[in-house]
């Protein structure tokens, strides 16, 4: 390689690293500085608003709490097993029953709960919204029939759905040995009801906007309904469909936190609410950790969706952001 091209390569690398690393880093540093300065000036009844250092400390506390909780849990089970083993040594017919551990869920348990709830709610929303969106986009009559309903339900806030969903779930989901807890179902259905609309509408618009020439190709070939949908309609609707899916997932995550706070359902929302009720001097710092975590997870969810879109979309050169 010549000197020149090595040089230009170096230049390019520098440009890339400036753009993709240095600038975001600058942004983060400036934010943290402003936060530090601003926070120290805000006084609340629970003390000074937490700055970055306090939040970092609370993050450490939350991790160690989680670890000690896990240790407790393990000990709890070991004790039970010990006891059962001893009884069995005396009386071989004895069948021991192991009770499950009912400690307080830690921050990380709550994250996990929120994550699978949001994914379940979003998944259900997709299962409803995508086929329905395709149907609406393909058929003007169905569109005209459903449009008013969609337009009315679309702007409904999760707070309005929550009581209804709660009542319906407790009335209809009665079983002695429930697979899902009621709180999970309530959160999940609320998420589904609130987040399905962008996917539904964008899918319908994408399907309705298939290029006329491609529709003519399909007609000339006399493609059957299924082939037509699979080969022509869905591929052309995919970009808009994913716009809708990403909006939906974003809404799902926001709605879930609000629903958990309001309904006291397990999850990050409940963590925030509990800390707020708790009102210790650490609370604000811990809530701030939760806020950052909520944001970070929301960001990761969106990135994950983007990756799925990259994988599914046929145009790999398309710039997605």
């Amino acid at each position: 390689m010549s000197d020149l091209s090595i040089h230009s390569l170096k230049e390019k690398l520098e440009q890339i690293s400036i753009k993709s690393l240095l600038l975001p880093l600058c942004g983060i540093i400036i934010f943290i500085m402003l936060w530090q300065v601003g926070a120290s000036r805000v006084h609340t009844s629970l003390g000074v608003f937490p700055g970055p250092a306090v939040v970092y400390e609370q993050w450490g506390n939350l991790i160690s709490e989680h670890q000690s909780e896990r240790v407790k849990e393990q000990r709890f089970y070991e004790r039970q097993e010990d006891r059962i083993a001893k009884r069995q040594a005396k009386d071989p017919d004895y069948v021991g029953k192991i009770r499950s551990y009912t400690g307080k869920p830690t921050f990380f348990d709550q994250i996990f709960t929120s994550l699978y709830t949001v994914l379940a709610g979003f998944g259900l929303a997709c299962l409803i919204a995508i086929p329905l969106g395709i149907l609406i986009g393909l058929n003007n009559a169905v569109y005209s029939a459903l449009n008013p309903v969609i337009q009315v339900f679309k702007p409904v806030s999760p707070l309005a759905w929550l009581p209804l969903v709660t009542m319906v779930v407790s009335a209809t989901y009665v079983s002695d040995d429930p697979i899902f807890s009621k709180s999970f179902l309530t959160s999940m259905f609320t998420v589904t009801l609130c987040c399905m609309w962008p996917t539904l509408i964008n899918t319908a618009v994408g399907v309705a906007a298939v290029e006329k020439d491609l529709l003519n190709v399909s007609k000339v070939l006399r493609l059957g309904w299924f082939t037509h949908v699979m080969k022509i309609v869905i591929p052309s609707a995919i970009p808009l469909m994913f716009t809708g899916l990403r909006l939906s997932l974003g809404i799902a995550w926001m709605v879930l936190i609000a629903a958990e706070m309001l309904a006291q359902n397990p999850g990050l929302g409940k963590f925030v609410w509990d800390e707020f009720q708790n009102g210790s001097s650490n609370s604000l710092g811990r809530i701030m950790v939760a806020v950052l975590m909520i944001g970070f997870i929301g960001f990761l969810l969106d990135r994950a969706m983007l990756m799925v879109q990259r994988f599914v979309s046929w145009d790999k050169t398309q710039i997605l952001r």
Partner: peptide, 30 residues
């Protein structure tokens, strides 16, 4: 419309998500 009266459209109208082979294949399969 029907395939016995095939149309070559002004702006090619190939399905952008299929390769050349697959575009022809769609017609041949049909």
């Amino acid at each position: 419309p029907g395939p016995e009266r095939a149309v070559v459209f002004q702006n090619h109208s190939l399905l952008p998500w299929l390769t050349s082979y697959q575009n022809v294949e769609l017609a041949v399969k049909q």
